[in-house]
Design a protein around this nucleic acid. Structure first.
Length: 199
DNA sequence: TTTCCGATTGGCT
DNA sequence: GCCAATCGGAAAC
């Protein structure tokens, strides 16, 4: 295992999103280590990306997206769900990658407990499910990765084939293929893998 | 200060 | 397939 440092994220989010597939995401919350392989991500860019939080310029909420790469960006969605992103790209150039799903491997029992005893496949197959399973909330906003509570790492496993397609749950910039996911992986969000050209 | 609405999920029809 | 839950940021007034 090789821990990913900030320089890994000092590239456009669109590039990092594909690179993060098959990397490992770990958290240590309340002393309990959980994690697994990332199988689905989405890139969010600057003003040219209308679905991005940075679409309307700098605000108090999205300011982290304009900061240095490798910092966590966590926000509350629909008043009840948290989503976990990592800031990418050069400073003052807004960008981030949303981690949407992972394949649970470490701390499965704890993740099941946090998720109300769901089956393995339902533990982290969606951005809000993932944060719930890993114990991520607003306390983890603005962490410089790697941190004790959250870090990403690469392993020696050979990367799997992945697909690229439209993002999920947005109404703007729908035509952009900014979503990346492992081909034929049952741990990605949704019932089926929509869209996508093989990379 | 008020209103609108979202990078979602899960339960019900 | 449809819809409620729930709340903070951002824009409108």
């Amino acid at each position: 295992m090789r821990v990913l440092n900030p320089d890994f994220f000092e590239r456009p989010a669109l590039e990092v999103a594909g690179e993060l597939l098959d990397k490992y995401l770990f958290t240590r919350v309340n002393g309990r280590k959980c994690g697994g392989r990332v199988v689905e991500t989405e890139a969010y860019m600057g003003p040219e990306d209308r679905a991005s939080h940075a679409a309307c310029g700098l605000t108090a909420r999205n300011s982290l997206m304009y900061g240095p790469a490798g910092v966590s960006y966590v926000y509350l969605c629909y008043g009840m769900h948290f989503c976990f992103n990592v800031v990418c790209g050069e400073e003052s150039t807004p960008g981030a990658v949303l981690i949407r799903a992972l394949e649970p491997e470490t701390g499965v029992d704890e993740m099941k407990r946090r998720r109300g005893g769901k089956v393995l496949r339902e533990l982290a197959s969606g951005p809000a499910k993932l944060t719930q399973a890993l114990g991520i909330d607003m306390r983890h906003n603005g962490l410089k990765l790697p941190a004790v509570e959250i870090y990403l790492a690469a392993s020696g496993i050979p990367p799997r084939a992945f697909l690229r397609g439209p993002r999920v749950g947005i109404s703007k910039s729908v035509s952009l293929n900014y979503r990346f996911f492992i081909k034929d992986c049952r741990f990605v969000s949704g019932h089926r893998q929509r869209g996508g050209a093989l990379q």
